[in-house]
Amino acid sequence: MNQVIKLYELAPSPTSTRYYSPTTWKTRMGLLHKNVSFETVPINFLDLRGNLAIRSGQTNITVPAIELPDGTFIYDSFRDSKPSRDAHREHVATGKNYARLIDLGLGTSKSEWAVWYDLFFPQLDQQIIGEEQRLYFTSDSRLGPHGYQKLLALDRQELIRRAKMNVQPLVEFLREHPNQYFQGAHPGQVDYIIFGRYAYCRMLDPVLTKEIWDEQGEELRNWIRKLSQAYNGHAQLLFDSL
């Protein structure tokens, strides 16, 4: 029996390493944090609703999805990715740090902050190939009435402005805590949640990502560099492979 777990990742094609799901990136970093060996299996939206749903016996399965060596599937992203070492201490730190980020403006329910999917939708749209896949991706059943056309018609400059506003609380937090991660002295769940959002952007448009993330401050740029190069440069190798 294969003892390596499988991590199912959304990607444009079965051979692509352009993994763009922010929640799956969070799980990926969590598995690396725990030193868990895993195999990445690229899937698309139709695979998720078809073959994977059948094999897992879960009609509503989502990514990140993990298949254990015994065939059991797990698809709760927080349960998948939460580091186990010093769990209680990290949980307390996570709560305090995330509360501070919310206080600074990140994670509010206002539409001002719901920007990432809208902003990078045209880039994601360009990656979706195959007639059947595109029919589903652009469908009203998935995006709502005329949702595809509405997303492409959004004001790009306004979305970029809002995205930069979204990043500012991260910069402020790191300035308040020099030489630290969002989790504390070491990277953890809070970092992986935020890095998942960064990786989503980086996988779809490196140039725009640099403008929105890297150029907002040295503190955030250094944090990105450290996490990209963590775990033997795992994330950086994927970024460079595109």
Rank of each mutant, 00 (worst) to 15 (best):
I102G: 09
R85E: 14
E131A: 09
F73M: 02
S111P: 01
T62Q: 10
A87Q: 11
T59S: 13
S77P: 11
N97E: 05
G71H: 00
T94K: 03
T108S: 11
V115E: 01
A114V: 06
H88F: 12
A87L: 09
K96D: 10
I102P: 01
Q123Y: 12
E90F: 08
S56N: 03
E67D: 02
P83D: 13
A99W: 04
P83T: 02
F121Y: 12
Y117D: 08
P64A: 02
L119F: 11
F120R: 02
I74Q: 13
S56A: 02
K110G: 13
L119Y: 11
S111A: 11
N97R: 04
L119N: 03
T62P: 03
R89S: 13
I102Q: 07
R89Q: 15
G95T: 13
D103P: 02
G107Q: 08
L104P: 03
N97P: 06
L68G: 02
I54K: 08
S84G: 11
S111M: 07
D86Y: 07
W116S: 12
A65Q: 07
L104G: 05
E90D: 13
R55D: 01
I129A: 13
Y98T: 05
T94A: 08
R100Q: 12
E112D: 14
D76N: 12
A87S: 07
L104Q: 05
P69D: 06
R79P: 00
L106R: 04
S84C: 09
T72P: 03
G57N: 04
L104K: 08
N60S: 12
G105M: 03
